[in-house]
Computed example of a mutant assay.
Amino acid sequence: MKQKTSPSILIVPGLRDHVPEHWQTLLQATLPNAVSVAPLERDKLSRAARVAALDAALAAIHGPVILVAHSAGVMITVHWARWHEREIHGALLATPPDLERPMPAGYPTVDVLRQNDWFPCPHQPLPFPSIVAASRNDPLAQFDRVVAMANDWGSRLVDLGEVGHLNPAAGFGEWPMAETLIRELL
């Protein structure tokens, strides 16, 4: 009888990479089978470099994988899915940004994102099960735009209510619901 292997959890951070008090960093520390995409040393805004880093992290993992992406990490994941055929067990896609609309001060402009090849945003269904966790007051994306993304990707939408961008600035360190949603993907 073949023993079932638990999927590895691959954390896909956003453009700010690894923030010590972020729920993804804290989650990785609590799950024995979790690893993270390594931070980029250069080309930090390049979509191609970010997708290549995700692909390299996946190449180092043998067996099933669940992706846990936040913010621009969601966009990295959906861009990766367009061009790669690695089997993915599932993905938790938390608070994707709407990169096609201007974002608050301190974030890359639409022109900078365009120069770094982030457009167009993929609208194709993902080839693996996914859950989009959406905030009703995310400063980086209007709720209706995230609903449209989830529909395009064939993802189940989870309405988180008003949680901002689900990051330390919005009051989130630990996010226990992440583990619940990951278990749904098992």
Score class of each variant (00 low, 15 high):
residue 35 V to E: 06
residue 142 Q to F: 03
residue 79 H to E: 10
residue 1 M to G: 15
residue 149 M to K: 11
residue 132 V to D: 01
residue 93 L to N: 06
residue 14 G to N: 06
residue 184 E to M: 12
residue 178 A to H: 04
residue 16 R to P: 00
residue 68 V to R: 01
residue 79 H to I: 07
residue 38 A to P: 04
residue 168 P to T: 10
residue 88 I to P: 00
residue 30 T to A: 13
residue 121 C to L: 14
residue 150 A to W: 00
residue 154 G to I: 07
residue 28 Q to F: 02
residue 142 Q to K: 15
residue 24 Q to V: 00
residue 108 P to H: 08
residue 170 A to G: 11
residue 35 V to C: 12
residue 132 V to P: 00
residue 134 A to P: 01
residue 13 P to H: 07
residue 48 A to P: 01
residue 138 D to F: 00
residue 20 P to S: 12
residue 164 G to N: 05
residue 57 A to C: 03
residue 53 A to R: 08
residue 34 A to V: 08
residue 56 A to E: 11
residue 92 L to V: 05
residue 10 L to R: 08
residue 127 P to A: 11
residue 120 P to L: 10
residue 53 A to H: 06
residue 15 L to Q: 10
residue 38 A to F: 00
residue 45 L to H: 15
residue 63 G to W: 04
residue 20 P to W: 09
residue 146 V to T: 14
residue 167 N to Y: 00
residue 174 E to G: 11
residue 144 D to A: 13
residue 106 G to H: 09
residue 78 V to R: 04
residue 85 E to L: 12
residue 178 A to Y: 02
residue 155 S to M: 05
residue 142 Q to L: 13
residue 28 Q to V: 13
residue 155 S to K: 04
residue 49 A to L: 13
residue 61 I to W: 06
residue 156 R to Q: 14
residue 154 G to Y: 03
residue 157 L to C: 08
residue 53 A to P: 00
residue 1 M to S: 11
residue 122 P to H: 10
residue 118 W to N: 10
residue 68 V to A: 04
residue 75 M to L: 15
residue 73 G to H: 05
residue 18 H to P: 01
residue 58 L to C: 10
residue 48 A to N: 07
residue 141 A to F: 01
residue 30 T to K: 15
residue 170 A to D: 05
residue 144 D to P: 09
residue 139 P to M: 07
residue 117 D to N: 13
residue 179 E to C: 06
residue 123 H to S: 14
residue 33 N to E: 14
